[in-house]
Design a protein around this nucleic acid. Structure first.
Lengths: 353, 353
DNA sequence: TTGAAAGCGCTAACAG
DNA sequence: CTGTTAGCGCTTTCAA
């Protein structure tokens, strides 16, 4: 490992001069600088981050904290991580992957006590998240992918649920639908605190109201079986529903099966859209589902960038907050609603076809 | 940030004694040790990793290198990463996520030059991988998830393709199938060098041979469209095929559509299995596909553990090499083959049903 | 414009 | 058994 000293010797200058020349921290004569740069290049010099960090207190390492997620990791989470890693890399930062154990705050205390990281990127943020309180109190720079209930003072990048719901409703309304149902996650201990679950539900309600579209929002389903059941109940209670948005991929599988069992075709008899799911998943379905794809990679990038900005800004400028809507990817599951009464006669049992 | 010095002062001993007591690097009187530990606990002391690393040359940080993958990141890759991060965490190590840019070797040279990391975990290893050569020459400890063509001297964790293919063939043969087709990735510039693509193909060929099952291996498909075409050609050329294994998820979508268009039911008329795909993906299909699920998380864990073992072992013990077969998850797409001639008559065009 | 020197927090000889 | 000392490689005063 070649060090500053080696370079200094080769260029016949003092160590501090080399440091200055390479970092531009103070003026260095052009000729001297040239010699130094040459020497450094010849020796393949790389600054030692540990030494630098030890004195400067800045390591250019960010930690990405993620709870071992409740329902296994999806593409979405991966894209947060890779997006963040990329953005960090572009700015000369590194990303440390930190799985959280049972006690996230303890984990954070440990991690930040190491002196290894400059800041923290929080994933899977809940409406009330104890991690944010710890970080605020400890004065550790951080930003969130997602947001708490009251994120005023904190930088975050999150999905623009308002706009997303509005786009979805507009899409459906433009096709002529007058009544939309939404299958949310079931409000278990986790979802009850999980932003996307809560916010999507609320915003769908609001967006349909604004658009004058009738709304059915009190169903939930997380598995194929639940999707199937919910769908059957939905049709029983609301036979005039023509459009359905589903947040859980497995639930959509059940819905499709239940619809088929009823003899309903998609999209002729039912418009089905997937919410917060990647287009890659939507393509696994037949027909290819219309989907509202979360901008995961971008959120990761934004989160990292905000954090880095905050680290670079010596003073404390106001927190950055960015909301990005999902991308509406129209598949083959969106269509105009059936004419009234048109589909009721097709209740043949096709099981086994 | 409380330092060793603070602890030393509070416990009324020398700094080196504190270090020794806390690390057990040399005998310390029980009473002294107790005092030191108390002081450390009271002050909430955490060793500074940078300082420690600077002198000990060991940071307990591993880098996970991943090329920006050719077809977007899948669940599989994420699971490598999280598995590795977990295993690392358990051993007191940290995982740095390092996206590779255009020039992976240059990236590696930079990364390792930083003095920040103790070792490297390689993902997406190709049969000839220039990164391994660099690392070997540079003497940097590393291990691979996947393996090169001749990985003799290197530690790795990879899928046991032989066993995986054998299990798949056994499954199909036990159901009574006598002829199996396999749709591989198309041999583009990437796949031509990519281990799983090559090895899965080879091992399917070998396993069918051993099992006395007829084999069709010269088809490939990476998209739904290609899957559809390949399937039509397959049936034209081999009307007696009753079982099909597909490596690409989107291709399976095409196969299912093409089969349905032909009036073939799954599994009655065709047994379809997904190779190297997660059960979560397989569940998106209808019927739920039988799948050979790669042990991604475990491979990540193993890779990390091997690397750490190698770092801990001062001497150089032989490289560890582990092969883990995919898990066969039987879904609703496996069944006995149709009786000869049984399905030929159903070639009604059902498009629009 | 440059050099010398101090010190970041820690480990590892070496004395005592 | 414990304290003193010398660095690890770097940044950063402070003098020259």
């Amino acid at each position: 490992m070649t060090s500053l000293r080696d370079v200094a010797e080769r260029a016949q200058v003092a160590i501090s001069t080399v440091s200055a020349a390479l970092n531009g921290t103070r003026p260095v004569a052009a000729e001297t600088k040239r010699r130094i740069e040459l020497a450094a290049a010849e020796l393949g010099y790389r600054p030692n981050l540990l030494a630098r960090g030890l004195v400067s207190k800045r390591t250019r390492i960010l930690a990405l904290l993620y709870p071992t997620p409740h329902s296994g990791f999806g593409l979405t989470e991966m894209q947060f991580a890779t997006g963040a890693a990329e953005a960090a890399g572009e700015q000369g930062y590194h990303l440390l992957l930190s799985p959280e154990n049972a006690d996230p705050v303890e984990e954070l205390r440990y991690l930040t006590g190491l002196g290894l990281i400059d800041g923290v990127l929080l994933m899977e943020v809940r409406l009330d998240d104890e991690r944010t309180e710890f970080l605020m109190e400890a004065g550790i720079p951080f930003s969130m992918i997602g947001r708490t209930r009251n994120p005023e003072a904190i930088s975050y990048a999150d999905i623009d649920f308002t706009q997303t719901a509005q786009n979805a409703v507009a899409h459906v309304a433009a096709l002529g639908h007058r009544k939309l149902a939404f299958f949310n996650h079931s409000p278990d201990a986790y979802s009850a605190q999980y932003g996307p679950t809560i916010r999507t539900g609320e915003e769908f309600a609001a967006a349909t109201r604004r658009a004058g579209v009738e709304y059915v929002g009190d169903f939930c389903a997380d598995s194929a079986e639940e999707g199937r059941e919910a769908f059957d109940r939905l049709v029983a209670e609301h036979p005039d529903v023509t459009a359905l948005a589903v947040i859980s991929d497995p639930a959509a599988v059940g819905v499709i099966a239940a619809a088929a069992a009823r003899g309903w075709r998609i999209p002729q008899d039912l418009t089905l859209i997937l919410v917060l799911s990647s287009a890659r998943v939507a393509e696994m379905f037949h027909p290819r589902l219309t989907t509202l794809e979360p901008p995961s990679g971008e959120l990761g990038r934004l989160g990292a960038r905000m954090l880095i900005d905050r680290l670079q800004a010596d003073g404390d400028d106001p927190p950055q907050q960015r909301l990005v809507p999902c991308r509406l990817v129209v598949g083959d599951s969106s269509g105009p609603p059936p004419a009234p009464g048109e589909r009721d006669d097709r209740t043949i049992d096709r099981t086994g076809t």
